[in-house]
Amino acid sequence: MNPSMVISPSFFSVDGLVGAVFLIMVAITLIGGLIACNSERLVRSVAGLIVCFVGVAGLYYFLNSPFVAMMQILIYVGAVAVTISFAIMLAAPEEQKRVGPSGPLVGPFGFATAALLAGGFSILAIRTDWKVMAKINDGSVKTIGIQLLTEYSMVFELISIVLLIAILGALVIARGGREG
């Protein structure tokens, strides 16, 4: 076992600063997630979603995957969040008539369900003794590219067809009822 996992590093050492940056990323992720599912206006909700995705990209950086972190920012923050903002501007009424939950019991029961699921998964994760296996390659961007075009080439082609059909379907559905 790595000795740095047992001995607590000083805050001003390199390890300590890395740990502090990790805690900041976790805080950004959780605060963004809380804003995304609790704010009263949808635009603020999307802003919280963007903050949350930037934090998740930081977590991916800590998981040895700078490529996936960049893709997270490009695809989620750059494309998905912008698409959702467009939809809010096109479809959401100026004044949300009723903002809160639809019944008096929805909030508490929803919170109970979410807390039960999150707590259960957390306890399950902490109590399990995860086996660590030796790596068979380095997981670099070059290896990802080679494997995408050899071992995962079929899935790669299928996902591009799925995206093409999704874009065409979105155009057809959104144009359908348009008058004039």
């Binding site: 929803g110 919170f111 979410a114």
Partner: peptide, 16 residues
């Protein structure tokens, strides 16, 4: 797990 729980909570309580 916490992100998943937040998502479930939003899915249940959101009106829009």
């Amino acid at each position: 797990a916490i992100l998943f729980g937040l998502g479930i909570y939003g899915m249940v309580t959101r009106r829009t």
